[in-house]
Amino acid sequence: MATVGLPRTGAGRKAQIDRAVRVGSRRLVHEVPCSSTVRRSGIARPTASHRARGSSVASRSSRSRATAPDQGGQGRSRPRQADLLRKWSIKLDKRLGQHFLADPRVPDRIAGCVARYDPERVIELACGAGALSFALLEQGWPVHALEIDQRMIDLMREETAGRPFTVEAVDLAREDFKRHADGRRIVFAGNLPYQISSPILFGLLEVLAEPGVAAAVVMIQHEVAQRVVAAPGSKVYGILSVLLQARLELRREFVVRPGSFVPPPEVDSAVVTLTAREDPVLLGEDGTALVRDLFSERRKQIGGLLRRHRGLSLAQIPEMESATGLNAQARPETLSVDDFSRLAGWIRKLGDR
């Protein structure tokens, strides 16, 4: 969700963008309390250690830049997204799920979330036409962007000439984010394409424990954000909730309405901050498989599911209850991360007998 396809006529394009910006000044961003930090099945605030943790310049060009008064209050100039997209004749690529972020407050607020971690460098995911990139640069951070659309790569290399910004062609769904962990304090940030947000989140899961990696601040579909931070017993609590919460602390920052984008998506978006847990629960491959198997029938009782999926006998069910403290009549959707960990550990020991 980084760029946009606009109407073919100049007047039509300008009118559509101007409408979006006018609406954006009124009611596009809905705040959610920042205490929505998930740790295990409860709530926690970012710790001091998480706050403390954690290129060459593109060549200049003769092409002029379209600029506007700074929207971030820094006294500098920021290119207008609408002007950039018209200037470069950018059209929507539906395959990439591209949407133009028209409300300048949103990238400023994302940059504010990034600022908590005092990064030495920001790795931007899906920079598009730079709505977030310029807000990050205004904070004085070097930015290295990962983008799949060559049109956007060309645009950003030229429009950021002379600034500490680099960009490379990357498929985020297949990226090994660990290669960007170089020991410096870094933060990953970006407006993620809806259709590949889950593989990106699992990719970030692997890098956030690396030295120097302080956090990831990402915009995702609001429905996915709800699942990410959901507690046991919630209707949206599931596989994604358990696997991410086992190793991460997750904080929902704020919700962004469809009117913030041109063209508007059909659903709300939300910005979420991810940091590594100080006490991660390592489920392992067998524990991860157990979570997936049990949630395949989330409304069934775990006693029956364990007999069906793990071959337990009826006589072994009371032993499971005694060893794990779980009730065989409980359902997967009510189990916490720690519950899954104890259950996976007991099954592991059972197999070693």
Rank of each mutant, 00 (worst) to 15 (best):
M1Q: 04
M1W: 03
P7L: 14
T9G: 13
A11I: 10
A11L: 08
G12H: 07
R19M: 12
A20Y: 00
V23W: 09
S25D: 15
R27M: 12
V29P: 00
H30Y: 09
H30A: 15
E31S: 12
V32F: 08
V32W: 03
P33Y: 09
S36L: 15
S41Q: 12
G42V: 04
P46M: 12
A52F: 03
A58L: 12
S59E: 15
A66R: 07
A68D: 08
P69I: 07
G72F: 14
Q74E: 15
R80I: 07
A82D: 10
K87G: 11
I90T: 03
G97C: 06
H99G: 07
F100H: 09
P107H: 09
D108N: 14
G112N: 11
C113I: 08
R116S: 10
Y117R: 06
D118C: 09
V122W: 01
I123G: 00
A126L: 07
S133W: 01
A135E: 06
P142Q: 10
V143R: 00
H144Y: 10
H144R: 11
D149P: 00
Q150F: 09
Q150V: 13
D154P: 01
D154R: 14
L155G: 03
M156T: 06
M156E: 10
A161R: 04
G162S: 09
G162N: 05
R163G: 09
F165C: 05
T166G: 15
T166C: 13
V170N: 01
E175K: 02
E175I: 05
D176I: 06
D176F: 05
K178S: 15
H180L: 14
I186R: 04
I186K: 03
V187G: 01
V187A: 04
V187P: 00
G190D: 05
P193S: 13
Y194W: 13
P199M: 14
I200N: 00
I200H: 02
L204V: 06
L204F: 00
G212N: 05
A214T: 02
V217T: 01
A225S: 11
Q226S: 14
R227L: 10
V229P: 00
G238V: 10
G238I: 08
L240A: 04
L240S: 07
L243F: 01
R247E: 01
E253W: 01
V256W: 02
R257C: 12
P258H: 13
G259M: 06
F261L: 13
P263W: 03
V267E: 07
D268T: 10
D268M: 07
S269P: 05
S269E: 11
V272R: 03
T275P: 00
A276D: 01
D279S: 10
P280Q: 07
G284V: 10
D286L: 09
T288E: 15
F295I: 05
E297G: 13
K300A: 14
K300I: 08
L305W: 06
L306M: 11
R308G: 04
H309T: 15
H309P: 02
R310D: 07
G311L: 07
L314F: 11
Q316A: 14
I317M: 09
E319F: 09
E321C: 10
E321N: 05
T324F: 03
G325Y: 12
N327F: 09
N327Q: 14
N327V: 12
R331Q: 11
R331S: 03
R331M: 08
E333G: 06
L335D: 03
R348Y: 13
R348Q: 15
R348V: 11
L350F: 04
G351D: 14
G351C: 08
